[in-house]
Amino acid sequence: MKLSSPIYQLKHRAKSMAREEGIPLHKAQDRIAQMEGFATWSLLSSKAATSLVTDVLGQVESGDLVLLAARPGHGKTIVGLQALLDARRENRRSFFFTLDMTENEARDRLTDMSNLELAKSIDVETSDEIDADFIIAALAEAAPRTIAVVDYLQLLDACRDKPELAEQIDKLRLFAASKQIVLIFLSQIDRSFDPTQRKMPSLADIRLPNPVPIEAFDRRFYLHDGEMRVEHRAA
């Protein structure tokens, strides 16, 4: 079923409805979802992410360092979480490292998108200490084809006592290749990106307060308005 509008526009409609009618946002989102033919907002979100996740998982290979970038509300978190759920359905171990959500928030979103049993099978890490060394230690015994999503790139060196982002990414790139696992980093797109000038964001639109070698990423996926563009690292 094709949505009447991109999901970020449906989110705006839900927020307006919640404000105008004085109802909780989740109730407004469910009402919007029902207008689109889905019982709940979580089912709508999962459906919207399914085809994009298929494209992502179909193009990445074991050992890849992956960038998944979008403006807020354009689905990068949904696609990242759905990738973890789909990987678990293939009996691949899945990890979610988040510096942006609490564990309860992450678990609730995973459960809404699947079921309690599947959501519980995903390893969720929400420590403030998450950085390259933390991720490497957590994945030290991970089997090949394990998939991990990091939420999100720009927060890895937010604390001054953490190594520079470029140093962390270089360390994680070598680790992913040696372990033959997939590391997916959610990333923000700068607010200066203007969709009236270009349909999709690109490398130049990645918000980077601190320098990072973006060319280190084997695949770079950009999401906008329910569409996706991919770039591959030059050989």
Rank of each mutant, 00 (worst) to 15 (best):
K2N: 11
K2C: 09
L3R: 07
S4G: 06
S5H: 15
P6E: 02
I7F: 01
I7P: 02
Y8P: 08
H12Q: 14
H12G: 14
H12L: 10
A18T: 02
R19E: 12
E21L: 06
E21F: 13
E21G: 00
L25D: 05
K27T: 09
A28L: 05
Q29L: 09
R31H: 07
M35S: 14
G37D: 13
A39F: 11
W41F: 10
S42T: 01
L44Y: 01
A48P: 06
A49V: 02
S51W: 06
V53P: 12
D55L: 09
D55F: 12
E61R: 12
G63N: 08
G63A: 13
L65S: 04
A70Q: 08
A70I: 01
H74R: 07
T77W: 04
V79G: 05
G80H: 06
A83M: 03
R89K: 14
E90H: 04
R92C: 07
S94K: 06
F97Y: 08
T98C: 10
L99I: 11
D112H: 07
M113A: 14
S121L: 01
D123I: 06
D123V: 08
V124C: 14
S127R: 02
E129D: 14
E129F: 15
D131E: 05
D131Q: 12
D133Q: 11
I135D: 09
A137E: 15
L139E: 02
A142D: 05
A143N: 13
P144K: 10
T146E: 02
I147V: 15
V150Q: 04
Y152V: 02
K162Y: 00
L165D: 07
K171M: 11
K171Y: 12
R173M: 13
A176F: 04
A177H: 04
K179E: 04
V182F: 06
V182A: 00
L183E: 00
L183P: 07
F185Y: 15
Q188Y: 00
I189E: 14
D190S: 12
S192Q: 07
F193M: 06
D194K: 01
T196I: 07
Q197C: 11
R198G: 04
I206M: 02
I206Q: 03
L208I: 03
P209N: 03
V212D: 15
F217K: 09
R220C: 14
L223F: 06
H224Y: 12
H224F: 11
V230M: 15
